[in-house]
Design a protein around this nucleic acid. Structure first.
Lengths: 248, 248
DNA sequence: AAATTATTTGCGTGATTATGCGGGAACGCA
DNA sequence: TGCGTTCCCGCATAATCACGCAAATAATTT
């Protein structure tokens, strides 16, 4: 095997998985670890990847780590972290949009082997960066304001799956009106997402508690878990706990 | 054996295997390694292949190795600019992926009122930035390497539309093999995109002319327009013009 | 046809490159 | 802190390359 060929293979692997392990490569390519390391070093010098202990990372990966943290609020990180524990290997997870979700996807453990279904373009892009996640995008007409696919086609396709978990980024949640949103087309899709999942989790920073929008996505009793950045014992959450929601 | 004959054989081998080893060639052709090396060097100077230690690689290898870097941006901008003139108000445009396409979408005039259909996530995201474009995303399982949706669902949905224009980012285009690509799932989608459009336009920087990959997307006669950064009178384009392609 | 010239080819030599191995240093994790 | 892994460095080996030169071949001239 030619050297350039090997390096092309490494680049390919990097582009797909966003990372490579030296140990893996030397098995796959049937060469010594030393040669792998030399290849990685060369490619790193050419700026094609970033060499780290044990292997190498895609350049884009590095950027996302460094830049995305800038506008991610610490609260959202806390929420995302709590939610990640709910995702187990082999699950089929329906996931909506929003910056909290972006953060969550970013923080997914690299060895997680789950399938994600979304209709949100930035989330899909972020999910594609994950080495092991399988990503399904239910597409159709895209709604500019929410950067997500909407419409009957999408709703219908959610009707054809049975998901384990629905992670719902939540704009507004209220004791009486449940989860609400702004646009008709969005709530249609969110309804479908909730309906197809066994368990629905609402992710909301505490500011969004007890606020309402015009249109109802679902009543409170359709939500199983509520995740905020607050401690479960916080008094703001007590009324929700009384309604039967698990609080994290 | 004549020199030209040998070199033709080498080119042939390169086209089939995407690489050759000097050591193999000198056995197959029954000549000394020195001669092989001289031949490879000549062919490399003519730009027919890339010489590396131990043999030579097809030009297409160069692309995969450079892939993540947005190289030859100025050329891509020229190409994108030429292609934009083909898009008129009210059109339904099918658009594939690639950095050239990203550039094109970026350069779209803000007052353009067209509908775009794509299966590529970054392109969709870029299109969403446009104030007037309507964006349709045909989704399904997403392919990590190409960041696009693939599979029967997608193909089927292209079968349900009649587009005015298909803008095809092209990896490799060749007089005999037409447009080719790397992955089975990708060519299936591209085929569907071409089939549903009245007019197919191939966007390719001149480096990609006369290179091939393993799988054929379509023959040359299914392409209506070829756009490169070269002047239409350039001699590299003449054979394509003779095959009936409009050159921009 | 013969001679001359130009081109191509093969070989030898020494230089360059690629690769693997061993030992010690550095790292990461518990 | 200690242990296993990974890394870095120097070296040895083998493969590949580049250069000059001479023989062989092809092309051109006389």
């Amino acid at each position: 095997m030619l050297k350039k060929e090997r390096q092309a293979y490494i680049i390919q692997q990097i582009n797909i998985h966003n990372k490579v392990l030296s140990s893996d490569l030397c098995v796959q390519l049937a060469i010594s670890e030393d040669t792998v390391r030399r290849d990685l070093q060369e490619l790193a010098e050419e700026g094609k990847l970033i060499k780290v202990h044990g292997g190498a990372l895609a350049k884009s990966f590095h950027f996302t780590i460094e830049s995305k943290q800038v506008y991610s609020l610490p609260e959202k990180k806390i929420i995302a972290h709590k939610a990640i524990d709910l995702i187990k290997d082999g699950m089929l997870v329906v996931i909506s949009g929003g910056t909290t979700m972006r953060e969550l996807v970013n923080m997914l453990p690299p060895d997680l082997n789950a399938t994600f279904v979304t209709t949100n373009v930035p989330i899909a892009l972020e999910l594609l960066e994950h080495p092991n996640a399988e990503v399904i995008f239910f597409g159709n007409k895209l709604l500019k304001s929410a950067q997500m696919a909407v419409g009957a086609e999408v709703v219908q396709r959610f009707g054809q799956i049975k998901a384990d978990l629905c992670l719902l980024g939540t704009n507004s949640i209220d004791l009486n009106f449940g989860i609400t949103d702004l646009e008709w087309e969005i709530i249609e899709v969110k309804k479908a997402m909730i309906a197809c999942a066994q368990k629905t989790v609402s992710l909301a920073i505490s500011e969004k508690l007890n606020s309402t929008q015009r249109l109802q996505v679902c009543a409170l009793d359709q939500v199983d878990v509520l995740i905020t950045e607050l401690a479960p014992s916080d008094e703001k959450l007590l009324p929700y706990a009384k309604r039967g929601l698990a609080i994290l």
